[in-house]
Design a protein around this nucleic acid. Structure first.
Lengths: 194, 194, 194, 194
DNA sequence: CATGAATGAGCCTTCATTCAT
DNA sequence: AATGAATGAAGGCTCATTCAT
């Protein structure tokens, strides 16, 4: 289906070049159609990218949700580690989508801003709840030092954000190593020795 | 001096709108000159932004260098904390420059890529050396757990990157709080209890 | 019948926006079909509007013809007055058709020019003959001052044209008043006092 | 000055083809420049045509005003006749401007509507006052039949409008003849026999 | 230094039209 | 009879850039 090919090329070029440089004509050329044909499927350039964004966010959202569902069992440490690992895997398995996702976060055509931010917030809230549960349980079970859950979540997110950013600069091997290093230090900071 | 006013408006608009949307004409308009006048000072759009980038990076570089010089004395903990705090202060005191700096990191006109990356690398190396010294000393003095200095540096950088990214999404108050939280957990992870 | 709905929407939009802005797609949208469907009924945009024009002209032509037939009896004054009145009624009862008719007169796609002008001329000739008869009789009967019939026809037409033009600028009430005023002065000018 | 050449070609093409078909590129081609050059002088297509309209209206307005000033002396009949004659002369000496003026009256980009209508109204009011004076004086002096001045003005305007419309369909010679015929009948209608 | 004028390249978009289904 | 998909042509417009003044 052409519509999907357009969308895929669109997010690929978004990843590579950003919104402005991802020209309708360059997208059309890569798809193998003429520029005006895009308008048979999307009202606008904005409309096209809004669709791309929506897909990207939904897929990401879904993936996180599903990953989390998989770690119902296991210790707090295992759960947290799995989350980090899963997200790293996702990032690395979908480098283009991740890059597109990043571009998205850094420049958004003003019109799309609000719509996209809503999905962002939704995702953040979900992740927040999950982490809250894990940390609370960890503390109750004496595995994690007793400290404000807020702090734990904040620094976990910061870790994730840092990794996310570094994703853009490192090769896969380096990145994986780095993720391990970072995780270790993080865990050492929060677990309670016996 | 007009040349500087151009550069300042340029990085301001870079921060706000990114490279593509920071049009020469929109820059000229804000400066209060006509577009072609820019060519009296810069060969190119690329040339202008290369200058902007260079300034941005050099200032950032210099700032880090100076900050570090200030913490010649003090414990490893103090030194590291000062680095975090100083950078956060810098980010917060120069939100526009920081935003520009970020845009720069996320999209660079291909021609500029190599030149800019060099400066990046230089900065990273410098920071690496500083951190290496601090961590090594900390371990020697028994303040920091004995562990690979590489890991310590990696996770310190990840912390900084995470904060850097979050800078874009949080208000100053929230950000400051977050920085404290993150630092605490980090330090708990690396210091050696007695 | 779809064909007719297309035609009606077409002349309505012609009236509102003129030939160029009466887009096939905007017509299709208002009809509730897809643009290419129009081609099932009309060869062309030109073809469609040619049909619209033809209808418009024929209806107008027919109307004038029928109106005139009604005034077989009566004095010259009555006949002329009835023509003016009838046409004004027609204009006012079909404001959209009249507007379309006007647009038609003012811009015609070059290809249609000749075809349309033929119908115009036909109509004008018919009207000319009718007026000729009325004026000649009026003069013979001593009701109208003895003067060149040509002049009488010319100024009657000018009166009609003026009213036609003013139709576009005035409300119905104002227009009706104006028509009466103009007619009175016109008649006072040509009738012969005893 | 290029700016003026653009405006002149613009109104010429407006006269010939109407607003939509008077393409910026076709205007540029006739001027002998490239399309984007137009934007050095006009913000917009609308801006360009607004300038054209303003010129057209102002010139027309000025011409009427000056013509009228010339007939300060003379009988009512002379004055009225001079107005008709002057306007016909103007129309005929500036066929393109008149055609443009007509196109203007029949289709106006919606944005320009209000601005242009103001100038229209101003002109109409001025003409109304002048005619009011002439007719009132004519009646006082016993040259014109005692009748509502409103009627006299309405039918004079209708005469002018009719002529204006016919201007588009007739050759100069025919038109001049027609104007004479129409004037005669008009005057015969309003003058008072002794 | 600064600018007015000009331009090639290119962008987003619309339009009339075709064709296979 | 109707439509989804596609397209060539063209339109309005912006941009970076040049050049003479």
């Amino acid at each position: 289906m052409t519509r999907n090919r357009i969308k895929e090329v669109a997010y690929k070029q978004l990843a590579e070049k950003g919104y402005d440089q991802a020209t309708l004509s360059s997208i059309a050329k890569e798809v193998g159609i003429k520029t005006p044909s895009i308008y048979a499927f999307f009202k606008n350039k904005e409309d096209l990218f809004m669709a791309v964004y929506k897909d990207l966010l939904e897929e990401y959202y879904l993936h996180i949700k599903r990953s989390i569902a998989n770690f119902k069992n296991g210790s707090a440490k295992e759960k947290l580690y799995q989350i980090v690992k899963e997200l790293c895997n996702y990032y690395l398995s979908q480098p283009e989508k991740t890059a597109a996702y990043t571009k998205l976060a850094f420049y958004l055509p003003p019109t799309l801003n609000d719509k996209v931010k809503n999905i962002f917030n939704e995702m953040e809230e979900m992740l927040f709840e999950v982490l809250e549960t894990i940390f609370s349980e960890g503390i109750e079970q004496g595995i994690i030092k007793d400290q404000p859950v807020d702090d734990l979540i904040a620094s976990f997110n910061c870790l994730m954000d840092g990794l996310f950013l570094e994703l853009l600069f490192y090769t896969e091997a380096k990145f994986r190593r780095r993720a391990e290093q970072v995780w270790n230090i993080y865990w050492n900071g929060i677990y309670k020795e016996h």
